[in-house]
Amino acid sequence: MQTLRFPARFDYLDEIREFVGNSARQNGFDGKDVYNIQLAADEAASNIIEHAYKGKADGEIQISCGLEAERFAVVLVDYGKSFNPSHAPLPNLSADLAKRRIGGLGIFLIYKLMDEVYYQSNPDKSNTLTLVKRRA
């Protein structure tokens, strides 16, 4: 597993996607899977910045990624407010334009794009979100 730490700011999303994408590529994923893994990691990091840190300027996200037993994992650790993504309300995909809710879309995409999603919270310490893509 390779690990890097990033400031919890939207202007670091480019670097987060690059880090995760390079690791996925090195581990044999093709362009389409790389894009989807990058998108899932971006949505996860964006949620951490927006909700766990609520725009707090000095937050940090630690990201590790790598392959173990044909499973590529992206592990995001934050030290902010806990937020279990499995408790997020799902967007109503059949609602028309006027009623379509805007929240929850990122988390919904994470579940669609990845094969497994785990969340673990140690209150007042850290939160760990693990995203897994299986290698076909």
């Binding site: 996607r17 894009y35 990058q38 998108l39 971006d42 949505e43 964006s46 334009l97 006027a98 379509r100 805007i102 879309l105 990122g106 995409l109």
Partner: peptide, 19 residues
């Protein structure tokens, strides 16, 4: 090259306003 859900949300808001 790339669009996340943040872009999708902006599109949705614009579609509502335009329509």
């Amino acid at each position: 090259e790339y669009m996340s859900s943040a872009g999708f949300r902006a599109l949705l808001a614009a579609q509502r306003a335009a329509k």
